[in-house]
């Protein structure tokens, strides 16, 4: 298992990267962490003619945390994001989801933006982007675009990034202190891709009642599936009946494929179970956040 030959460029500037990508067009591929790409190359399931290694561009590794936003550069490693206390405070869901991404050694090299750009529907971060309406900044030689989570994923391994372009940044707004989030998943082995995973977000209104509730499912459809269950949960506090009702509603709205690890029926069951657990956990986290603030 050895990669086929390719041309390799490693520009030191953003402009250099964009020029190289533009020149390569459809034959080009960005190499950031490479933790998903290189296995595909070694198995010769992918053989781009040009690899544009972006790891030498200094400002690509920037992780900026402002009072309003978290901005993640394209060579920020999962592990850096996961262990950043400031990120954990601003967007707790990132750390919650990242702790499920592969194993620490992979997280040391793999990049979060790369993981989103890879658009693997079983990737935890795809669901985070969709749920939180994160914004992907896509740059090419012809200009810069911003695409929100809901528009970014087009299909399995297919995103709004065109050939000659790359994701140069992913931005998340700081979560309101009334919002609680959670990520739960079931995988065959620890660290494996999820059979089903759920990111959940709950916003509390007055008097700790639920105002908004949304979940984003991964490993369930061709892209992350976001479902709003505010209609079912709005205005309630803790009530197992409503959690169950919301979870059933979510499960009834999806039709996941079966594969060698899990059947469609089992996945639907997991969607229900994990939606319930995810929502409950997000609710608890919301209460905790509100309590900390007070």
């Amino acid at each position: 298992m050895k990669p086929a030959p390719f041309e390799y460029v490693r520009p030191r500037t953003r402009a250099g990267v964009l020029a190289a990508l533009a020149a390569a067009g459809e034959d080009g591929k960005v190499l950031a962490g490479g933790q998903s790409l290189i296995p595909l190359l070694s198995m010769r399931l992918a053989s781009p003619k040009v690899l544009v290694d972006i790891n030498l561009v200094p400002d690509f590794s920037a992780l900026k945390i402002s009072p309003t936003h978290v901005e993640i550069g394209p060579t920020v490693r999962h592990q850096e994001l996961l262990t950043s206390e400031a990120v954990r405070k601003a967007v707790p869901l990132l750390a919650q989801a990242l702790s499920y991404v592969a194993h620490p050694v992979i997280r040391n090299r793999g990049t979060s933006v790369g993981s989103i750009a890879h658009a693997d529907p079983s990737g935890e971060l795809t669901a985070v982007l969709s749920l939180l309406d994160g914004v992907v900044t896509i740059e090419g030689q012809d200009g810069t675009r911003e695409v929100t989570g809901s528009d970014f994923f087009l299909g399995p391994l297919e995103s709004a990034i065109n050939s000659g372009e790359m994701a140069t940044r992913v931005t998340f707004g700081r979560l309101p202190t009334t919002m609680g989030t959670a990520c739960v998943e079931v995988s065959r082995r620890h660290g494996d891709y999820a059979l089903v995973g759920v990111c959940a977000a709950i916003v509390l209104g007055e008097d700790h009642q639920i105002d908004r509730a949304r979940i984003s499912l991964f490993s369930v459809g061709p892209t992350p599936i976001v479902i709003d269950v505010s209609g079912i949960l709005k205005g309630i506090r803790i009530d197992s009946k409503h959690w169950r009702e919301a979870a059933r509603f979510i499960a009834s709205s999806v039709d996941p494929d079966g594969d060698i690890h899990a059947t469609t029926a089992y996945r639907k069951n997991l969607v229900e179970v994990l939606s319930k657990r995810g929502l409950q956990c997000a609710y608890q986290n919301a209460l905790d956040r509100v309590a900390v603030k007070q």
Partner: peptide
């Protein structure tokens, strides 16, 4: 050679990484 087994792990600038994925 697809990054799962970990036998090829080395330290790069102090951090453990898979040498078959670089």
């Amino acid at each position: 050679e697809h990054g799962v087994c970990g036998a090829c792990t080395v330290l790069l600038n102090g951090k453990a990484v898979r040498s078959c994925l670089l």
